[in-house]
């Protein structure tokens, strides 16, 4: 198993460029202007990966930023989630959009099941408790 990263590993693009890869597995060094012009690099290659976000979470935690690390971990879980689903979930979290806490819990369960998004699911479940308590569910 790989060791836990620390502040000393920052920035990863300088300390471990070979291990930093885009969404389709291309390492940083392969993301050259030539490769772009030849059509070998697309926007997909320039997307962040869950691995990169988890690596940044480790660095953040070592720097004393646990809350930032948790945000990166939630972000890592969202990488694979399609844009429409993200926007739909965001919409559900806005005030008064869902009628009862069950809908939010179902979304949490779906994210957990389909995307392995454990932390996000917990986050949504906590929201559901407080939304209900504060009367944000008109139904």
């Amino acid at each position: 198993m790989r060791r836990t990263l620390t502040r000393a590993d920052f920035p990863l693009a300088e300390t471990a460029p070979d291990q930093v890869q885009g969404a389709r597995g291309k390492p940083l060094e392969a993301l050259t202007l030539e490769a772009v012009l030849q059509g070998d690099v697309t926007i997909e290659d320039l997307r962040i990966t869950p691995q990169a976000l988890l690596a940044q979470a480790e660095i953040a935690r070592d720097a004393g930023r646990a809350a930032l690390a948790e945000n990166f971990e939630r972000g890592a879980e969202l990488v694979a989630v399609p844009q429409e689903l993200i926007m739909e979930t965001y919409e559900m979290l806005r005030p008064g959009r869902v009628k009862d806490a069950g809908v939010l819990r179902e979304r949490a369960a779906m994210l957990r099941r389909d995307y392995g998004a454990e932390k996000l699911a917990e986050f949504l479940e906590t929201a559901a408790i407080h939304y209900q308590r504060r009367g944000l569910m008109p139904g």
């Binding site: 920035p11 990863l12 930093v20 885009g22 290659d45 320039l46 997307r47 962040i48 990966t49």
Partner: peptide, 12 residues
Amino acid sequence: VKLRVSGDYLQT
């Protein structure tokens, strides 16, 4: 755009 691959610039 390459900055987003490593995510280094997401740090504080």
